[in-house]
Design a protein around this nucleic acid. Structure first.
Lengths: 242, 242
DNA sequence: CGTCATTTTGAGGTATTTCAACGAAGGTGG
DNA sequence: CCACCTTCGTTGAAATACCTCAAAATGACG
């Protein structure tokens, strides 16, 4: 784990991706942090880089910081009594994670790829909120945004067909995750079993759904971590068919 | 829909149920609104009573207010293209709902029972947040709390067995909803089909799971809206068996 | 007290899970 | 740099559990 100096003038600080819940600032307005706010966050936080598979924190441990992703992908998950694992979320650039419950983390967070992120002590953050109420609103927007995403995901999980669930997952990656620069292909940074644990299905079902989509001519895989939508019309129909 | 005068001295104002994400204020500390904050909210909001089945707002319509439940149960849902309905949440006393996206409600909200609630204009609320940063933090706590609940529900939805999913639902009602005063029985204010839409299963499966639990001696139904856990040990085992 | 929506019960079809084994890929050390 | 080993992913076949369709029974409500 490499810690980098924070608060340097060359460090723009973290950004947060969210959407306003009011319409006061114009419909569709992204609620973005001002440069000044990003700098403040950079000052009270620490910028760090961690390699893939690093554990950021474990569930049930004392929570002292929240994290903001700058680059890379993080997953959060819980272990079930049966030994199975359920992913709570994938976090991409500009996502916040590590909000805890009663001072304890409820999930384990692990880097899927190499990750650059900010670690911000909760105490400093809450203190900053009191000085800058507008910043608190940004985080509230972010939290409500994530809440809506979680509700949408709940709808995905109720789909019976594995092919459709996987299609919605790929659609999510296309929106949230980094697109592969060329041909507008979709990058799939996580493993098949991560996808299975996220969608609540078996590894085998994910595999079969992948080949099924390819066989039907909806998508084309270029290795296991890059996929391209071939038949956009039918792909979108599959996504919407629920 | 009956609107009641707000801001009267006899009106204590709404309360919010949440949990701190830091531990600054003591482990397990509920983050409760001060009397003063509740009064402020009562002043800028409107207290109202609506009968069962009232629509509070419809999805895609302009959002101008958020709501806080004082008494009763509300459900929020979306209609899927197929015509099926998926419930996003049940809201009980001290729950907040109506947080929107880009000034539009994303769900439809409907009263399950007769409901008493506060309607608070978003503009007034955000203005209040700027004057009272601590209040903003309360709402942030609430939002993160609901986010965690949504993640827990996602885990419920991945259960394959209908009996287990229903058991987890009853457990949720036992914690969140109002317990029936006598014998510590659980009140089930919503219909079977509401439960089905919430758990993502068919109405028939809910019915069979209910009778299945009763037949196995785990619970005993007293009509369709009251259930009592008979064999707590095995019931809890079922809840945890995932 | 009657009507109507909701719930229960029944039977067959289908999709996913599970178990098992093979094949591919990535990482490590010599 | 290559070989080995471990992890991950693919494919196959049987079993389980839910969904759908259909009809009867219960309960809610005026």
């Amino acid at each position: 784990m490499i810690k980098l100096a924070g608060g340097r003038s060359s460090d723009p600080g973290p950004s947060i991706r969210a959407v306003t819940f009011g319409k006061s600032q114009g419909v569709g307005a992204k609620r973005l942090l001002t440069d000044r706010q990003r700098q403040k966050l950079a000052t009270i936080g620490t910028r760090m880089k961690v390699p893939a598979r690093s554990i950021l924190y474990r569930e049930e441990t004392d929570a002292d910081s929240i994290f903001i992703v700058t680059e890379g992908v993080v997953k959060t998950f819980r272990e079930l009594p049966s030994g199975k694992r359920r992913l709570s979320a994938f976090l991409f650039a500009a996502d916040v994670f590590g909000l805890s419950e009663n001072g304890r983390y409820v999930n384990t967070a692990q880097a899927v790829t190499g990750v650059t992120l900010y670690r911000i002590p909760i105490d400093s953050l809450t203190a900053l909120f009191n000085r800058d109420p507008e910043l608190g609103l940004q985080f509230l927007s972010k939290a409500t945004h994530e809440l809506r995403e979680a509700q949408r995901r709940a709808i995905v999980l109720t789909r019976r067909d594995a092919i459709g669930r996987l299609a919605m997952f790929l659609r999510m990656l296309e929106k949230d995750g980094a697109r592969v620069s060329d041909h507008g292909a979709i990058s799939i940074p996580m493993s098949r079993s991560d996808i299975a644990d996220y969608l609540g299905m078996s590894l085998e079902a994910v595999s079969r759904a992948s080949t099924g989509q390819a066989r039907r001519g909806l998508v084309a895989f270029d290795g296991r971590h890059i996929v391209r939508v071939v038949d956009r019309k039918r792909f979108d129909e599959l996504v919407a068919a629920l």
